[in-house]
Write a protein that binds this DNA or RNA. Sequence first.
RNA 1: GGCGGCGUGGCCGAGUGGUUUAGGCAGGGGCCUGCAAAGCCCCGUACGUCGGUUCGAUUCCGACCGCCGCCUCCA
Length: 465
Amino acid sequence: MLRLHDTATRTVRPLELRDPGQVSMYVCGPTVYDLPHLGHGRYALVFDVIRRFLLFCGLDVRYVSNVTDVDDNIITRAAAQGRTEAEVAFEFEIRWWEAMDALGVLRPTVAPHATEYVADMVTLVAELFDRGIAYETADGVYLNVEQVDGYGLLALQPLESLRIGARVEATDEKRSPFDFAVWKKAKPGEPSWDSPWGPGRPGWHTECVVMALDLLGEGFDLHGGGRDLAFPHHENERAQAVALEKGFASHWTHNGWVEVEGEKMSKSLGNFNSLTDLLERSDPRAYRLLVLRSHYRSPIEVTAETVADAEKGLERLDALARRFALDDLLARAPGGFVVLGRDAAQQANGAAVERFVAVMEDDLDTPGALAGIFELVTRAHVSADEGRDEEAAALASTVAVLCAALGLALRAETGEVDPASAGLAQARDEARAGRDFARADELRDELVARGWTVEDGPTGTVIRR
RNA sequence: GGCGGCGUGGCCGAGUGGUUUAGGCAGGGGCCUGCAAAGCCCCGUACGUCGGUUCGAUUCCGACCGCCGCCUCCA
């Protein structure tokens, strides 16, 4: 079984399933008030890979990831742009899914919206209120964290030590500095819903509790997100569940940061920290490879260099795909899901698959998994060079299967060739046949000038983009 | 102030108490090729500093230096 780091216990331990054969996971989704950034892309990729690996291992996965479509940031953005909150949320949610699709991130099984759950959230807040754990202030309803057992579990430090450095606003009516809003009273012009405390909107930390419990049930298996969500967001989700005496996530997993050229990320690189922008200016698969190349809990550096480096790694995989005419298994699979599970893959090259599974099960060691895949690439070429075609084909197809398990698409196609370029390629073959190499080289230069990469294959000139 | 993480060869990035290497990219040499490209083979003898434990540490312990993050909305 997959062993993953669990933030609550600070250990790597097996993911224990509530229902055998069935994984229930909740990953905190975006607040849709702006374009997704690189950090969004990383968490989405990390948990996509966890999901795909579990699928590869033959498990059913119910993957719930929310969209926060009401929140302070959206309100601020809408006001600044003279639009409604709904318009802002709608626009950026579209941009979000565009980016996810480009990254090859599987759509969640369910992607609930906060605004669809307001009534349930009011019910939850009322219950917290009735239990005396939440209290009303001038601007909302707060949960008193001092009444929650084990508060500070995910912050990885006791409540007392949190207090020392806490910044407490002087005007705060809060009973404890870490008390958080479960309901925010609306100011004039803000979107609002009715509640026993007057018109308002739910606090951010409330939506995930309600939606996770509704869509996955108590005691679901895995809750994930970026490292920064551990505290206070996940801590506060958990606090509400504990206050209500409901079983919540069994396992908490958080991924590390994205760093962009040190501290001056956006300054020197323009919009480079926008995921949308990165996806436009590089092969979208490169970001997946870049993310997979380091451990999910380590910080990663995203620079023009590391992205270019990843693109070259991709080229090596694609070259194998071309040589062996490997199918892009993801393109053929319905919904981009892994089609070949572990059992089927076993037939390709059992030892390699077992090694892959072993390293992946060890806290998602994707760098190790990639190392194994690249070794298979070399072995496939060697086998083919030495004429062991069957073995070579098996090795190459193993590469395809394992790449698919990681969500990495392989490209064997060479791109659409226009008639003029095809003509040049043919002319070059004719020149070469007549041993007019000067002419052949001229034609190659011309093709290169048109943006093609030119290779001589067994059947003549092959051009590709 | 409290807490946590990191520091590996030109770059990215794993890993381990010693004997055999991660892997990728770049670079050098060779094979193949009309020349290239792709591919294959070979090469660099790395582990922040100072101590300690040990027969032996990059890997364990301690101190120190440096970098980063969290404690506040944040993936």
